[in-house]
Computed example of a mutant assay.
Amino acid sequence: MPIRRKGSPVKIQLIWPNPTLTEAANEVFRSRSSNQVQHMDISSVADGDTRILNSAEVTVFLGPEASQLAVIKSITDSLYPKPVVIFNPRWVFEEESSFGELSGFVGSFEVVYSFMGLEVRGILNKRKGVIFKCIRDGVLSGEKWTVLVEEEGELKVVSRFKARPSIGEVENVLYNLMAINSPITKSAKFLRGLVSNVTGKNQDEFQNSELTP
């Protein structure tokens, strides 16, 4: 279904990371050929005249490599103020701080959808989860980054972040959760409670009684 704006279809330019994927896309979509969607590879745009992109109203970079960021920025600057989308980039969030001058360019994009799987292994068990963010209806309204963990076959929310969390922050959340639910921790709590029941006092009361003259 074509994207429409005020009743008219929107022209979209899809830019692929290499000629092989571009050729494959043209083959797949050949039976659905439309003047509203064009396929190009990034090398042909970088080496040629970018004015060919001006006819498109939205440009989408599909699966670009970090090494192609300089070209992406150049193309994006030439298209301003038309919208540009980077879909499924082949770099991780932690790499973005090492992009130098291009870090600011990457940071200028708003994340509208992200779903990243996680797995943290403990001593006796492991936890699977995801980092998730989704902008509904394309309207930014303060959506948070959500960390969900699988419990009893279901994903449950365990934490939310205003800004995109680092892997270290997410690991801390998952490790703390694992520690709380660890059989070792539960056994320690049980033994501490058992001792308190035998003495008839909880730990705080026992400490206070020692301070009583």
Rank of each mutant, 00 (worst) to 15 (best):
150 E>D: 05
37 V>D: 03
65 E>Y: 12
111 V>L: 10
109 F>P: 14
99 F>W: 08
120 V>F: 09
34 S>Q: 09
73 K>A: 05
73 K>W: 04
143 E>Q: 15
83 P>F: 12
37 V>P: 11
117 G>T: 11
62 L>A: 11
118 L>H: 09
67 S>W: 07
127 R>E: 05
65 E>K: 13
60 V>P: 05
38 Q>N: 07
42 I>D: 07
118 L>A: 07
125 N>L: 01
60 V>S: 09
96 E>S: 04
113 Y>S: 14
133 K>D: 01
71 V>P: 00
151 E>L: 04
45 V>D: 00
144 K>V: 14
31 S>F: 06
33 S>V: 11
80 Y>C: 15
139 V>A: 02
141 S>N: 08
77 D>W: 00
81 P>D: 12
66 A>E: 05
81 P>C: 15
150 E>T: 08
51 R>Y: 00
78 S>I: 05
59 T>E: 05
112 V>A: 15
85 V>P: 06
82 K>H: 14
138 G>T: 11
108 S>N: 10
70 A>T: 07
121 R>I: 03
55 S>Q: 12
34 S>A: 10
35 N>A: 14
113 Y>D: 13
57 E>V: 02
103 S>T: 13
70 A>V: 02
45 V>C: 03
38 Q>W: 09
60 V>G: 09
106 V>P: 11
55 S>I: 05
69 L>V: 09
55 S>F: 00
64 P>W: 02
146 T>R: 09
34 S>P: 14
31 S>Y: 14
140 L>T: 09
40 M>C: 06
54 N>C: 00
138 G>C: 13
116 M>E: 14
38 Q>M: 04
78 S>V: 04
78 S>E: 07
98 S>G: 01
33 S>W: 08
86 I>G: 04
97 S>P: 00
133 K>W: 10
132 F>C: 08
76 T>H: 06
62 L>M: 15
79 L>G: 06
88 N>F: 03
63 G>Y: 07
73 K>H: 02
114 S>G: 03
43 S>N: 03
66 A>C: 11
105 F>W: 03
148 L>M: 13
117 G>K: 12
137 D>L: 14
108 S>D: 11
65 E>A: 13
123 I>H: 04
51 R>D: 04
111 V>D: 11
91 W>Q: 01
92 V>E: 15
37 V>Y: 15
88 N>M: 07
147 V>R: 00
134 C>Y: 02
151 E>H: 07
64 P>E: 11
70 A>K: 13
64 P>C: 06
89 P>S: 07
41 D>R: 06
120 V>P: 06
112 V>R: 13
44 S>N: 10
94 E>R: 12
55 S>M: 08
90 R>Q: 11
92 V>R: 13
40 M>W: 12
118 L>E: 12
32 R>C: 07
93 F>M: 07
115 F>E: 09
131 I>L: 14
54 N>K: 08
67 S>H: 11
110 E>L: 12
89 P>Y: 01
148 L>G: 02
101 E>T: 06
72 I>R: 00
64 P>Q: 08
69 L>P: 06
37 V>C: 09
38 Q>V: 05
84 V>F: 10
146 T>I: 15
30 R>Q: 13
64 P>A: 02
102 L>R: 10
102 L>S: 00
142 G>V: 08
142 G>N: 11
36 Q>S: 13
151 E>M: 01
84 V>E: 15
70 A>G: 02
